[in-house]
């Protein structure tokens, strides 16, 4: 009798635990606008607008999706690019393709405020700029992206580089992916846990950079991109975004020098965007106090600087 009660008790405990979690899941879904922030919006972007391929390649945008995220509307066309229209294979204008991560995508800024759109306006009516930026992409993924969109025949390739491109992306297993992407509890937990300090951003980025395996992946990927560009006779540019916490007493000159060296080695034009932000207050460039992605002002500065540096026929 005693043993039977214990078994029943355990079943009741598990059921109560599941019910309790379900209750919180419903509450968190209903009250989402009250606690939405950078982390939860990034989770929403990944779970509703991205997909994993589980092959050799990387995640990509879900075609034909549109969402308001962190105050900006993000529209993905049927080709998986941030654009309100599709690009035809036959081109009527010269094409510039931008490869990169959430900065290139234009996280937190409107479709027409992204540096790809501003650059397009600078270049004039004979050019179109294709924004192939995908959140959390690194150089490894950008090589796959370049091959994927090679059918669009770009006349110039610009690779946007940010410090976290040294980081390798870890994808969840199929089962945990299902729960992670559908669970508001997970998003809530992740957000709360990530607020607990785990180290300074300088140490985090430097540690990623100093990992020789990470460096090798960046080197190999950049080399592959440059080989592709040379074979097709397309000019290639590496635009290195600065870390947006502070520009004075900048902490990552070593990484900039390394990227400049890699660019030289691979015949890539190197653009150091840190120079573009000289005498600019970094606080005036943030999307918000918790999100250091560049805002519309930052995108304008990036577009203008790239426009002034690139050499087009």
């Amino acid at each position: 009798m005693h043993k039977k009660k214990k078994i029943y008790g355990l079943i009741v405990s598990v059921a109560a635990f599941i019910l309790c979690l379900l209750f919180f899941e419903i509450v968190l879904r209903l009250t989402y606008p009250l606690y939405a922030n950078y982390n939860t919006e990034m989770w929403k972007y990944a779970s509703k607008m991205k997909q994993i391929s589980y092959g050799d390649s990387c995640h990509s945008h879900l075609p034909e999706t549109s969402m308001n995220l962190y105050g900006a509307k993000i529209t993905i066309n049927s080709q998986g690019l941030r654009s309100e229209y599709n690009y035809s294979i036959e081109k009527t204008k010269k094409r510039v393709i931008l490869l990169g991560d959430s900065i290139t995508l234009g996280w937190g800024v409107q479709n027409n405020e992204t540096f790809s759109k501003v650059l397009e306006n600078y270049l004039g009516e004979n050019y179109e700029v294709i924004n192939a930026g995908v959140g959390n992409y690194n150089t490894y993924c950008e090589y796959f992206s370049l091959k994927k969109y090679s059918y669009l025949n770009p006349d110039l390739i610009i690779v946007g580089f940010y410090l976290n491109d040294f980081e390798q992306i870890k994808y969840p297993s199929k089962i945990s992916y299902f729960f992670i992407k559908n669970s508001y509890i997970y998003s809530f937990f992740f957000d709360k846990l990530s607020s607990i300090p785990r180290g300074h951003y300088v140490d985090f980025y430097k540690k990623n950079f100093e990992n020789s395996n990470n460096q090798k992946i960046v080197e190999d990927s950049l080399h592959k991109i440059s080989v592709y560009a040379k074979e097709k006779n397309i000019p290639l540019v590496l635009a290195n975004f600065p870390e947006f916490h502070k520009f004075e007493e900048y902490e990552f000159y070593e990484i900039n020098n390394y990227l400049e060296f890699l660019s030289k080695e691979n015949d890539i034009q190197y653009i150091d965007l840190l120079e573009a932000f000289e005498n600019v207050d970094p606080k005036s460039l943030r999307i918000s106090n918790e999100d250091y992605h560049p805002n519309a002002k930052g995108h304008k500065i990036i577009a203008k600087f790239i426009y002034e540096k690139i050499h087009l026929e």
Binding site: C20, F24, N39, T40, M42, W43, A46, S47, K50, I52, H59, S102, G135, N136, L163, N164, I169, K170, Y171, P172, I180, K181, Y186, S187, F188, F189, F190, D191, K192, L193, S194, S195, I196, P197, R198, H200, Y201, F204, Y205, H245, N289, E290, Y292
Partner: peptide, 27 residues
């Protein structure tokens, strides 16, 4: 309930922590 409450208290305590790199909840 206690785990939820602890997490909420911790996140309020560290809400002004702006020295974090970009983390991703998913990918």
């Amino acid at each position: 309930i206690i785990v939820f409450l602890i997490l909420i208290v911790l996140s309020i305590m560290f809400s002004k922590n702006s020295q974090m790199p970009f983390y991703y909840a998913l990918f």
